[in-house]
Amino acid sequence: MTARTTRWAALCAAVPLALALTGCGGGDDGAKPSAAPPAASSPAPAASASVDPDAAEKTAVIASYEAMTREQMKAYRKADAKGTDLEKYATTEALGQIRNDLANMKSAGTVVRGELGHDAEVTELDMEVQTPTATLSDCVDLSGYETYDVKAKKVIPLPKEQPLRYVMTATAQRWDGRWMVTDIDPQGGAGATC
């Protein structure tokens, strides 16, 4: 991969190979099933006891993040933010990161084709602070993503060692009743795959 790639491609390539890949457990740990019958259990708690009081806020955070990523991909497909609504969903710092990407793409003569998959969840939510803040963990899927060199008319392949799915993080804050993405950290998952 050369310096003539988009930030996404560069960020994807930045996932350190030295980190061990992590995954979900579930393998046989050598434990044998018990021959004893299961003990009687108390009735399950009422469904209302397990309702997340912050579910509506978490849904709003995800909706804002997903809207920002859609607008981001619109900009990356043409290496230009004109005609997008990025300002509705991202603050100055997050917009600065995206604008740097676009400037690098224009300089390199690249655009993005395909889709960058996302599967985000809110991992932290603090509604008690003056400016409510949320942290998101996003499983990014590169399987439908391509960096395309417009001048050479060819796809720039991802490095062979690049996982097609990895974890990144983002931060959002609630401003004037709506959630805004304030930071995007492609290496926030510390190289974890998903």
Rank of each mutant, 00 (worst) to 15 (best):
E57F: 04
P53S: 05
E121I: 15
D119W: 08
D126M: 09
K58Y: 07
S107Q: 13
E57P: 00
R113I: 06
V111E: 02
K78A: 12
L102H: 03
E57M: 04
E87P: 07
D80A: 08
D85E: 14
G83M: 14
M127F: 01
A94P: 06
L136D: 01
S50P: 00
D138K: 01
E57L: 05
M68R: 09
V51F: 10
A60I: 07
L136W: 06
N104R: 11
L125V: 08
M73D: 12
P132N: 05
G96M: 01
A75T: 13
L136Q: 05
G117V: 15
T123Q: 11
V122Q: 08
E87K: 15
R113Y: 09
A55H: 09
D80Q: 08
T110S: 08
S64A: 14
S50F: 12
Q97M: 10
A134P: 02
A108K: 10
G109R: 10
T110Y: 02
D101C: 05
V112E: 09
A63R: 10
Q130W: 03
K58H: 09
T110Q: 11
D126H: 06
V122H: 00
D52C: 02
A108G: 12
V51W: 14
L125T: 06
E128N: 15
E121Y: 05
A60G: 04
Q97S: 15
E128G: 11
A108C: 12
Q130C: 01
K78R: 15
M73I: 14
R70L: 04
A56N: 12
E71I: 03
T59D: 13
V129Q: 12
A108D: 04
L125S: 08
M127W: 01
P53T: 05
A103K: 14
A79C: 07
A103N: 14
S137T: 14
D85Q: 13
V129R: 07
P53C: 11
K106C: 10
V129G: 14
A67S: 15
Y65N: 03
L102W: 01
A103C: 02
H118I: 00
L136C: 04
R77G: 13
M68A: 15
D80G: 01
T92A: 09
V111L: 12
V61S: 07
A75R: 03
D138G: 10
E66A: 15
D85S: 09
P132V: 07
T135G: 08
L102V: 04
Y76R: 14
A56M: 07
V122I: 13
E128M: 08
L95D: 00
V129E: 08
K82F: 07
G83C: 13
Y89M: 03
M68H: 06
A134Q: 01
M105W: 00
T133I: 03
K58F: 10
R113W: 07
A55D: 15
Y76P: 00
